[in-house]
């Protein structure tokens, strides 16, 4: 991959968490719960490590 396309892919990876978190109505529901915790909370929490993985791949693509 050339530098340009690596940067484009990195930019897309960085933007994915925006798209997911922007869709508030999608996760603004109480069910299903996980360990007693409503979906609203655990979904937002699980997106944190997912974001870190996406960002890390983006960082590696930019720096390669």
């Amino acid at each position: 991959m050339d530098k340009r396309s690596r940067q484009v892919i990195a930019a897309i990876l960085l933007l994915i968490p925006f798209v997911v978190y922007f869709d508030v109505p999608f996760y603004n529901v109480a069910d299903p719960t996980l360990g007693g915790l409503p979906f609203y909370y655990w979904f937002q929490l699980i997106m944190l490590p997912v974001s870190a993985v996406l960002f890390l791949i983006a960082a590696m693509l930019i720096d390669r």
């Binding site: 960085l14 968490p17 925006f18 978190y21 937002q44 997106m47 944190l48 974001s51 983006a58």
Partner: peptide, 13 residues
Amino acid sequence: VPYVAIVFAIAMM
């Protein structure tokens, strides 16, 4: 929570 997720994408840019 979304705040402290996307803020780091903004920082990386």
